[in-house]
Computed example of a mutant assay.
Amino acid sequence: MRFYSVIIPVYNRPNEVDELLESLTKQQFTNFEVLIVEDGSTEKCEKVCEKFTDQLNLQYYFKENSGQGFSRNFGFEKAKGDYFIVFDSDCIIPEDYFEVVEKALDEHSWDAFGGPDAALDTFTTTQKAISYSMTSFFTTGGIRGGKVQVGTFRPRSFNMGISKEVFDKTGGYLITRMAEDLEFSIRIEKAGFKMGLIPDAKVYHKRRTSLAQFYKQLFFFGRGRINIFRFYKSELKLMHFFPLAFTLGLIAVPFIKSYNNAIGNVALGLFLFYSVMIFADALFRSNSFKVAFLSIAAAFTQLIAYGLGFLKELFTFIVQPKPSGLNR
């Protein structure tokens, strides 16, 4: 039986930590410890953690703010497990999570793994729509853990596990934010470790509570893709330009219509068709017209924000081609 160390970096989210720890108390598999790493928060979760010290093997650490990547490294250095599992603080963990992981590792002996995320029925309509947008094949290509996906699966830090050997050899996160998890996954792969997806090892991920917050997050994700390009030139693929092309195309529709109405109507029809595809897929997955309609707004928000962030960092790259000051 493996021993797991759960690493959770936290920044000003005590209520989320409360829900996350509550879900961990309900795990059927209990051979794990939990390390909460408070990353310089002004709203500390220490008292929340005290509620669970009798129910969980729990350690709480407070440190100066350094970002989520380096906070995870801090937890890795304190961890005692055979495997280290990273969750975001806004996740809720199903009761069978560790049993599913244990069974998969028995079968595949992966050095690193990840799982998908999903929405609970208790999430708000906006959270469900955002969850759909972040996991849909029509927006992300399924790269965040879907069974059907474009390209190689690489774990992301909302739901990611690595062996102690992986940390010992790689040293953990090289940068602390702006696609830090993707850079880490690529480096794990290049180091020769076995890595895989566990489709049933899902977490319920709350993500952002409004489209405005979602926009800010995805703008940063778009910037992160160019930051990865600073490290690995081969990692910028044609498909990564899709959100930018989508955004520029959407902006161009009125101008195209003013120049040639027929061509403009064709362009507009393509965006409408895309919206219908999203609506139908979201309706099938959620069985909710409200979620389906809002999923269109979430998908457009995601693609536009990512595309503009991508464009901004692309211009920055021209001026500053080397990795940003966020690395060690």
Rank of each mutant, 00 (worst) to 15 (best):
Y215E: 09
V203I: 15
P254E: 00
G264R: 02
F255G: 10
K202L: 14
K233W: 03
F231C: 04
L268N: 15
R223E: 11
L270D: 01
M239V: 14
K257S: 13
F255I: 09
G249P: 07
L238G: 04
K257E: 08
R208Y: 09
P243I: 06
I263F: 14
G222T: 03
Q217T: 14
R208E: 14
Q217S: 13
R223K: 15
L268I: 04
R223H: 07
K257T: 13
H205K: 15
V203R: 11
F229C: 02
F242P: 01
N260S: 11
F231K: 06
F231T: 04
F231V: 02
L236V: 08
V266G: 01
F231Q: 04
A245P: 00
K216V: 10
Y204W: 12
K202R: 14
A252P: 02
G224A: 08
S258L: 14
G224R: 04
P199H: 10
D200K: 08
F231M: 04
L238R: 07
H205R: 13
E235A: 04
T247M: 07
A267Y: 15
Q213A: 08
F219L: 11
N265Y: 13
R207Y: 13
L270G: 07
P199Q: 12
F229H: 12
A262P: 01
L236N: 00
L244E: 06
F242Q: 05
H240F: 03
G249T: 09
K237I: 01
L218I: 11
G264D: 00
K237F: 06
L250G: 05
V266F: 13
E235T: 01
I251Y: 08
A262T: 15
L268P: 03
